[in-house]
Structures are given as C-alpha cells and as structure tokens.
Amino acid sequence: MNNWIDLLIILLILSNFVMLGSSRLAVCIRTLAIQGILLGILPLMIDRQDLVLHTTLVSIGALIIKGIVFPWLLFKVLRRIGIRREIEPFVGYVPSLFIGLAGLIVSLYIGSKLDFPAPESVADVIPLSLFSILAGLFLLTTRKKALSMVMGYLVLENGIYAFGSVVLNKVPVIVELGVLLDALVAVFIMGIATYHINREFDHIDVNRLDNLKG
C-alpha cells in the first residue's frame, strides 16, 4: 500500500508544479480536477483499521466535489468570460517553478522536523500538504486573473484537505462534509464574483481592482 501512497503523493506534487507553471487556464482546471480525484482516493489508501464507512463517505464526497464539481464550475465560468490565459503574473512561470522547488524542499524539511502523531505510512503526506498550501498561497499572491486566484485558493484548500486526511479519523464526518460543502459554496460564489467582476470591469485582472485603498 505504501507504494501506492507514494505514487499518489508524487502525482499530487507534480500536479502542483503544473499549476505553477502553466499559463493556460484550461490546463490548470484540468490539473485541479486530477488533483481532486487523487485527493479523493488518498484517504482510502491510508491504512486504517476502523472507520471504513466514514472514510469512504468522505472520499466519495471529496472525489465528486473536488474532482468533478469544481472543474465543472470553473469551466463554466471560463466559458462565460471567454479568456484563456493568465497573462504576465507577478512572477514568471519559470521562476515560479524554481520557487515551487524551493517550497518543496522547505516543506520536506519542515515535515521532517514536525513531530507529528501520524502513522509512519502517511508521514509523507504532511510535506505534500505543506507544499500544496505553499503553492496555493504562491498562486494567490502572484496571479492576476480572478480565476487563477480561485484556483490558487483551491490548491491551498487541497493542501489543507490532504493534511486533514492524515488526522481524518479525528474529525467527525459531518464536519468533513460541512467543510467540503463550504468549499463548494465558496468556489461557487467566487465563480459568481468572477463573473460580476467581468461584467462590471470587462476584465478579471484583480490587480487592476485597486479603487479602494487607504
């Protein structure tokens, strides 16, 4: 089983790199979909004796919401708005990849330092989740398009979710589902907000949204 988990983790890390390095929004959304599906599977892979039902429920929920609903929503927004690319982020794509690499190393370092009460088998999930969080935050702070920010938020959310999956047996299922539902609504509303931005401003460059300051 461990190998499977490692594979998942590697795939997830790679997907983050794709998010960091891709300018095409459609590609990003697809990557997110893949990430969502992978994350959905992740809890199932973690070796647990008990709570099968619990884990399964949450996994299925995550799979559906993260892997299918989110991408669908995002695509819908993308089509409405009719743009394709993130243009000139604050940090270019190649530097982004390097920074991502640095982030990965930092995550691994912190993950190894953390004295975390998790089974040996899933210890690697923690660096992954940290990396996802960092990547998400990086996307949020450097991308200009509203949609890219939403995706950054999702990556961040995924990271936290991955972290949550490690302590999953500690969190009641209703909470988990509530959290998922909230994320869903959040993305839904962010999508609408993106649409509103587009309607009011004829663009979704959030860095040009700076009327309110001081």
Binding site: T141, K144, V206, N211, K213
Partner: peptide, 17 residues
Amino acid sequence: LRWIQQGRIQLYIAYIV
C-alpha cells in the same frame, strides 16, 4: 504606514502569509 494598503489583493494575502 498608508502604503501598506494600496488596494492590491495579492499583497494583502501576502501580509497574512
């Protein structure tokens, strides 16, 4: 201190981080 609030949301998130 006013420069900290320029209207750039990316910067705002950076503050949090």
